[in-house]
Every structure is written in structure tokens, then in C-alpha cells.
Amino acid sequence: MTALRVRQVGPGVAVQDLGRAGFLAKGLTRGGAADRLAVAEGAALLRQSRDLAVLEMVGTGGTFEATADIRIALTGAEMTAQIDGANVAWNASHKVPKGGILTIGPTRTGTYGYLHVGGGFATEVMLGSRATHQSCGLGALVTAGDLLLVGQDKSDEVGLTLPRDTRFDGGTVRIVPSMQTGDFAEDTRARFEQTTFRRDPRANRQGIRMDSDGEGFSTPKALGIVSEVIVPGDIQITGDGTPFVLMAESQTTGGYPRIGTVLPCDLPRVAQAPAGAALQFQFVTLDEGAAIEARARAAWDTLPKSATPLVRDPASIQDLLSYQLVGGAVSATDTPLDKG
């Protein structure tokens, strides 16, 4: 039996995958990983499907013991990580030997960190997914003493890494018009784009509050909105004028006006922004948004090609002759500074 035994674990750690599609009409949002890009990155590092289940960690990870040789990958928010006391790189794949201890500590950057295993976590499938959906009572948080079964691993390759991007520090988030965008005055929409928001500490997998200086954002038609379907990425404006970005476990209907909707490819930037990080929203048209999303999905599909060895073997470098291997070399006997 291949598994990870949980010796100690932080709060909010849960098994996730890409979520449950097709249940919105029945009152169940997709759920799944808050940072879907991190799931794709881990799959690329382990050369396996991105549909496999992973472990999502918030703030800190835990201590895990391998019952057999296991391949792992670490992606998302960077956390301290050690295998049998030796530091290991983040955004990379590694081997944990049988009996080995994997320790994942506090977050350094970002919010959600991910632990992937070769073969994926083989927890119970519920409604076609292994994702823990806390607000709907599907699955449960990981606790000390749990034995997390691991599926069959079809590879043994480790020692790969991927470059990290900038989604862990806030930044610009692209949005498209939503159902009530036109109900907001033009100058209100312009002010919304020009405002630098701060990611409020009041946030969870259902939604993230955006804090800012100055007056809030409102529309006179707010009280006349009938409750209707909403999706992750929608930006609701509450009665006091505060924006909330809805996340993976958002409710399925709501009556607050929506000033816009975050592109799915930019939602990981919102999810990973640490408390206090600056975020700014930029409107794009539906056609522009569709093109941006298509490019992002194509880039995600090419992630396996972007994975490179942590330590490059000269024998496997196809363009070895293009490297300058002697720059900075000095002679132990020649002393040019002593020559007149």
C-alpha cells in the first residue's frame, strides 16, 4: 500500500482536484483547487494528468511519512520544505523514500500551496470528484493520523522544475462586463479601474474582500436585482459599496450587483495574493477576454515542455556547445597584475 501518513497538519489542509462540473443547476458550484494553474504545474512536473487529486495547504503544510517510495511535486505559494531534514526546492519534483519524512512549513509568498504525488491522492470519489467542498459538506479537512492513499504512479522521473511567475504578489487582474456592469455609472466604472485595492484578510474559499481608500461603489438599481445565477470570478458589490471576488466555493445564486467578472486565467492571481497585496482591475471586452483565455489555456497545455532539470546533466544538454564554459576562469600561476 502506497500512502502518506499524516503526522501533523495545519488548519485548512484538504484534498482538491479541478472540481465538479455540471452541478450548478442543482445548487453546487464547481469547487476544487483555488489555484488551478498550480494543479497544472504539478501535473507537468510529474508528467501526469492534471485531473489527479492534490493536497491544498493554506498558510502552512504539515509533516508526512511515506509508506513507500513516492514522487512529489510542490507548487503554488512557496512554503519551507524538507525531506528527512534536507531543504528541497519549491516548484519542483522530488523523491521521498520509503519511511522518509516530508515537512512543509509556513508560507513565504502567496496563500495556497500544493502537494502533488505521483499517481494522485486516491481518496473517495464523490459526485465524480475527490475535491473537498467544505461549504457543502463533501469530504473533510485532513487531520493528524490520516492515511492518504496514493494511486498507481506510471513514472519515476523527478528533479524537474518550472519557472515561477508573478501571480503571488498581486498585480493587474483582467475582468469582463457582467450582468449589471451597465447599471453602474460610467464614472463609477472608471474609478473602479483606477482604484488600487488591497486584498483584505477577510477571505476564504467562498470569496475575497477587496479593501480600498475613498468611497465605495454603488448603483441606484441595486435594490431591484432579482437573485440569479453567479459563478466564481464574479465581483459582487455589497450594500456598503465593497467589492467581493467570488471564489471556487461561492454560492450559486445571489442578488448583489456584479460590476464585472474576473477571467478564469486571472483568478489564481486573486487567490494567491497575500493579505494586503495590491490588486487593480482592468476591463477587457468579451472578445478580448476570450482571446486572453485561449492563450492562457494553450500556455498551460505546454507546461510539460517548460519543465527543466533542477541540476542539468551536460550529457543531456543538446546545445552544450553554445554555452561559454570558461568565462571568469583564472590561472593559478599567471599573475597579470604583477606585470609592468
Score class of each variant (00 low, 15 high):
residue 158 V to P: 03
residue 167 R to K: 14
residue 308 T to I: 14
residue 89 A to F: 10
residue 180 Q to R: 09
residue 217 F to G: 03
residue 106 P to E: 09
residue 180 Q to F: 11
residue 199 R to M: 13
residue 44 A to W: 01
residue 333 T to G: 08
residue 112 Y to A: 09
residue 274 P to R: 03
residue 145 G to A: 02
residue 34 A to K: 02
residue 105 G to K: 04
residue 87 N to K: 15
residue 224 G to R: 10
residue 222 A to R: 07
residue 59 G to R: 06
residue 154 K to D: 14
residue 315 A to I: 04
residue 234 D to Q: 07
residue 322 S to K: 09
residue 46 L to T: 06
residue 74 L to N: 05
residue 141 L to A: 14
residue 177 P to G: 08
residue 261 T to P: 01
residue 180 Q to T: 03
residue 333 T to R: 06
residue 331 S to W: 00
residue 175 I to G: 00
residue 9 V to H: 01
residue 218 S to T: 13
residue 137 G to L: 07
residue 239 G to Q: 01
residue 330 V to P: 00
residue 271 A to P: 00
residue 312 R to V: 14
residue 63 T to M: 08
residue 12 G to M: 06
residue 240 D to V: 13
residue 11 P to N: 05
residue 66 A to I: 00
residue 34 A to E: 04
residue 71 R to T: 04
residue 123 T to F: 07
residue 167 R to N: 11
residue 67 T to M: 07
residue 8 Q to Y: 03
residue 331 S to M: 01
residue 110 G to K: 07
residue 239 G to K: 02
residue 38 A to E: 02
residue 1 M to Q: 13
residue 305 K to S: 15
residue 291 A to V: 04
residue 82 Q to N: 12
residue 151 G to C: 14
residue 313 D to A: 06
residue 81 A to L: 03
residue 192 F to I: 03
residue 153 D to P: 04
residue 101 I to M: 10
residue 323 Y to N: 10
residue 108 R to G: 14
residue 310 L to I: 15
residue 211 D to V: 09
residue 284 V to R: 04
residue 41 E to I: 07
residue 329 A to T: 09
residue 120 G to V: 10
residue 303 L to P: 13
residue 248 A to K: 10
residue 209 R to K: 15
residue 57 M to C: 06
residue 303 L to E: 05
residue 12 G to Q: 03
residue 119 G to V: 12
residue 100 G to R: 02
residue 148 L to G: 02
residue 322 S to C: 11
residue 69 D to Q: 11
residue 287 D to R: 12
residue 109 T to R: 14
residue 74 L to D: 08
residue 45 L to F: 09
residue 106 P to K: 08
residue 332 A to L: 06
residue 56 E to D: 01
residue 190 A to M: 09
residue 112 Y to K: 09
residue 85 G to V: 11
residue 130 R to W: 00
residue 111 T to S: 13
residue 161 T to S: 14
residue 152 Q to T: 15
residue 29 T to F: 03
residue 77 A to V: 06
residue 248 A to Y: 06
residue 107 T to D: 11
residue 33 A to Q: 03
residue 156 D to H: 14
residue 314 P to D: 04
residue 233 G to P: 09
residue 310 L to C: 12
residue 77 A to C: 02
residue 284 V to A: 04
residue 1 M to P: 15
residue 55 L to N: 00
residue 207 G to N: 02
residue 181 T to C: 06
residue 45 L to R: 05
residue 143 T to I: 14
residue 265 C to L: 06
residue 19 G to F: 01
residue 146 D to M: 04
residue 202 R to K: 13
residue 261 T to H: 06
residue 278 A to F: 03
residue 125 V to T: 15
residue 31 G to M: 08
residue 219 T to P: 05
residue 170 G to W: 10
residue 179 M to R: 15
residue 314 P to T: 03
residue 291 A to M: 05
